[in-house]
């Protein structure tokens, strides 16, 4: 067993994963530089663009740490390198755990169990995990250009050259409202007793919402625009801390 874990955590595996991640980061850097330059060429304020970068970076920090926890969770059975790769590229913990479990049973194991793992099971599971979630990539390669082209009917200009309001603006907000409603609904559903009973998600969401409401009040009514960058991350952090306290009380 220790032999299996030693093998899946061996140095060459780390090097392979590092090489793949360098490719992905390079891709991001190229897109970033191209877009930044295009933004400047279009006359956007470099200050605004920098603000976008800072806020995106701060916004990402917290959820990234949770992904790191996912790496720790997965590494117990699949080793650090594969878990590191899966959760850095495409994957999310929930998907990866599900897929690894499905792949393990397809291989003939009783589940993703460390005491049953072999190297042959490991490479097979790795291949299923990789191949199983390429759907979004294929869609992007084949359909993204056409799909976005169809959607972007250029905003109609009125005679004065001003843009006529279009539904596009509201469509994104509406879609996002729907997305949030689905998640919040699932947290509300968890209050009911039964298999899924868990009040923590709703409690955490509720605290986050209250903190966010305070931030929104300060930003909108008190004109404290500087808080915009931190409102989301700070609301989440307070809510997560509240979850820890709440669990201790329970």
């Amino acid at each position: 067993m220790s032999n299996y874990l030693e093998t899946v955590n061996c140095l060459p595996f780390y090097l392979i994963v590092a090489a793949v991640l360098i490719f992905v980061v390079a891709m991001c850097v190229v897109f970033l530089v191209k877009s930044y330059k295009a933004g400047i060429a279009l006359g956007m304020d470099p200050k605004d663009l920098k603000k976008v970068m800072t806020s995106s970076a701060t916004f990402t920090l917290l959820p990234s740490i949770s992904i790191l926890l996912g790496v720790i969770a997965l590494s117990g059975t699949l080793g650090v390198p594969l878990s590191w790769l899966r959760l850095s590229v495409i994957g999310s913990l929930q998907y990866e755990l599900n897929v690894a479990e499905i792949a393990a049973t397809a291989f003939g194991l009783s589940g993703l169990r460390i005491d049953e793992m072999t190297m042959s099971a490991f490479v097979t599971i790795a291949l299923v995990m990789t191949a199983g979630i390429l759907g979004g990539l294929f869609c992007s390669i084949f359909f993204l250009k056409k799909y976005l082209g169809k959607l972007s009917s250029k905003p109609k200009k009125t005679e004065t050259g001003e843009k006529k309001p279009s539904f596009g603006d509201h469509a994104t907000t509406a879609m996002f409202v729907g997305l949030c409603a689905a998640y919040i609904g699932s947290y509300v559903g968890r209050i009911a007793p039964g298999e899924y009973h868990d009040i923590m998600p709703l409690f955490t969401a509720f605290v986050a919402a209250i903190v966010m409401a305070v931030f929104e009040f300060l930003i909108q009514k008190k004109d404290m625009k500087v808080l915009e960058n931190f409102s989301l991350a700070a609301s989440m952090l307070v809510a997560m801390a509240a979850a820890v306290v709440f669990q201790l009380i329970l």
């Binding site: 926890l69 998640y183 947290y187 509720f206 986050a208 989301l232 989440m236 997560m240």
Partner: peptide
């Protein structure tokens, strides 16, 4: 002791975002 925090990252996210977007367009 920290597990509840990391188990509930997603609810924290959607609680905060939900408030923002629901307040933006309550009719929807």
């Amino acid at each position: 002791v920290l597990q509840p925090a990391f188990n509930n990252v997603v609810p924290a996210l959607f609680g905060a975002l939900g408030l923002k977007y629901f307040a933006k367009s309550p009719q929807i």
